[in-house]
Design a binder for these strands. Sequence first.
DNA 1: TGAATGATCACG
DNA 2: GTGATCATTCAT
Length: 214
Amino acid sequence: MESWSISSFAAVWDKVERGELKVLQPDFYGRDTVTVARELLGKVLVVRERSSLAAIRITETEAYHGTGLGADPAAHCARGETPRCSIMFGDPGFAYVYFIYGMYEMLNFVTERKGYPGAVLIRAGEPLAGIEVMKRRRPRAKPGRLASGPGVLCRALDIRLSHKGQALWGPKLYVIDDGYEPESIHVSKRVGIKVGQDRPWRFFIAGHPSVSQA
DNA sequence: TGAATGATCACG
DNA sequence: GTGATCATTCAT
């Protein structure tokens, strides 16, 4: 679809210092989870490698938040703070990564104010940079769908459990606003959950080839 | 439609 | 300690 000409981290940082790219700060995440999920569409996730980087443009997200009676039952935090989800109760702007189905990592961004739990699941993205290394990690995937799904997105970007707790403004993970504005954002029920289907908290860029469906 | 595959959590 | 569950993926 669209290519990102930047292929080295030095080039990214140069543009950040010149104000052409903006690294999202914790205040972006420290708001209502559903709003953050919607506004993350079109932002660029950069994973810093040794001397290069891998990057995707976020095209599909889901919101999970709340705890206690009446809270979103699909959220890990719904039944209170446990070792796995305690980071959701903490400061916003950090990665919440968990392992599921014995096979896949899932990448989330912690939202809301400290004390109230929330996170946005990053479900899909359009490959922008580091495409060769992503292909090596997912040799059977079609080029435009290297990160089309929350599990394979982590595979393509080599996001591991060890990334849990990483800040989203560096030095390993960066979420960047490069000025791109999605043309049309659609909303739907969340995918792959058995409860909480009444909440329309999935957001995606309409018609984008990296998204599973409309 | 179901197998793969293991961390997590609610029990006791 | 144990068993059910799970915000998935891919091949059948």
